[in-house]
Nucleic acid binder design. Structure first.
Lengths: 212, 212
DNA sequence: AACTGTGAAGTTTTTCACAGCC
DNA sequence: GGCTGTGAAAAACTTCACAGTT
């Protein structure tokens, strides 16, 4: 009898699925019905073997000789990523960035609905930003708990971000997308992803020509 | 005689250096002078061995028994990443996102100066956004070429992003930070980094509890 | 003929563990 | 005692290459 097989799927594979999904939706948009690991890989700059292996973790989604039915694959990936529902998302910070996020229309058809906008500044609380009335920080816990909100975006200055994160964790949030350029400390079981444009640019400058 | 040693440094290592730099600047800010691979790793959720190995690619920056002098290490990392100068950056797209980027004050002391803001919409061209007058797309090539600008940020809707990228490449840009949720095709020698908040959130939903 | 799914091989990345130094 | 820098070992990840299917 074989030992229990550890079939947890590598996180790096999970991280690529949203990219596949994005490319597949794009192909669908331009009227393509079927694609191949080769075509998809070309678009993404990823080898076809990798795409096939990644997808094979979840079952045989393709057809030999044919490729992948795009509608079918989109459906499967959405299901794997638990995107077969709408996730309500809270945004903290109603400054320039929080406002831009609130205005952005690109979340809704990819599984997310921005649902609340919070800010600590009493001048901002009560004002209208896009379709939201800015709520005070003191409302976070009750609002998110009552609504079982598990996802939040942090768009406050770096010096407040850890405090905000602590509050969110207390409110039961399990996934934080942090726009503040600072590392957050959170308990086990809470995920943080970071968006910091400067980090990306500093990565690229390494490879740039010296002459400015 | 040994074969020529390939001492190109792995890209994954380069990608971590900006994170080290960010954490080091944070420590400096709160008055710390010296740190260790262990402390830094703790803050970043990275093993101390990895930090030591990463840094060792560039020389012995630490002192045995003591750790790393923060000022010194910041200086070295900035030099490695070519951040010992100010890079001028162009932004394309003066919508909500482009405006938020233009207002953001966090670039300047990390090596980047947003210097121009372009938009295709003739209604926007000529208007003031923060300290910029919005420039027409037709100015991109001359402006960026004349100023040897190598870095640009794309903050336009997905359907225009590839066109904008093509224009930027033509203007001599070598590093693109793309906020549009679409993969760009660029020639060899041009780098693209992507920022798509939805990708990060879709990555996290995989691990969230099923009950919403 | 074209393409998937997959063991096996190859490569890269991370961790271990310890000599050497402060 | 505490810490770095680093070969060696281990683990993780990617690519190869091909049997099997349409």
């Amino acid at each position: 009898m074989p030992l229990k097989i550890d079939n947890r799927i590598p996180d790096i594979v999970i991280g690529r699925l949203p990219l596949y999904l994005r490319a597949l939706n794009r192909l669908k948009q331009v009227g393509v019905d079927v694609t191949s690991s080769h075509e998809l890989g070309q678009k993404l700059g990823i080898s076809s073997a990798q795409i096939r292996k990644d997808l094979s973790h979840f079952g045989g989604f393709g057809k030999q000789g044919t490729g992948y039915q795009i509608d079918f694959l989109i459906d499967k990936l959405q299901s794997v990523l638990k995107l077969d529902r709408q996730w309500k998302v809270a945004v903290v910070g109603a400054g320039d960035l929080g406002s831009a996020i609130s205005h952005y229309r690109g979340f809704i058809d990819r599984g997310f609905e921005i649902s609340w906008l919070f800010d600590a500044d009493s001048e901002k609380v009560g004002t209208q930003v896009d379709r939201f009335v800015v709520l005070p920080m003191s409302d976070i816990k009750k609002t998110l708990t009552d609504n079982h909100c598990q996802i939040a975006m942090v768009a406050v200055p770096a010096e407040y971000a850890q405090n905000v994160a602590d509050t969110l964790v207390e409110a039961g949030v399990k996934a934080i997308l942090n726009y503040a350029p600072i590392n957050l400390t959170v308990p086990e079981g809470v995920m943080v992803q970071y968006i910091d444009p400067v980090v990306h640019m500093q990565h690229m400058t390494y490879y740039l020509d010296d002459e400015e």
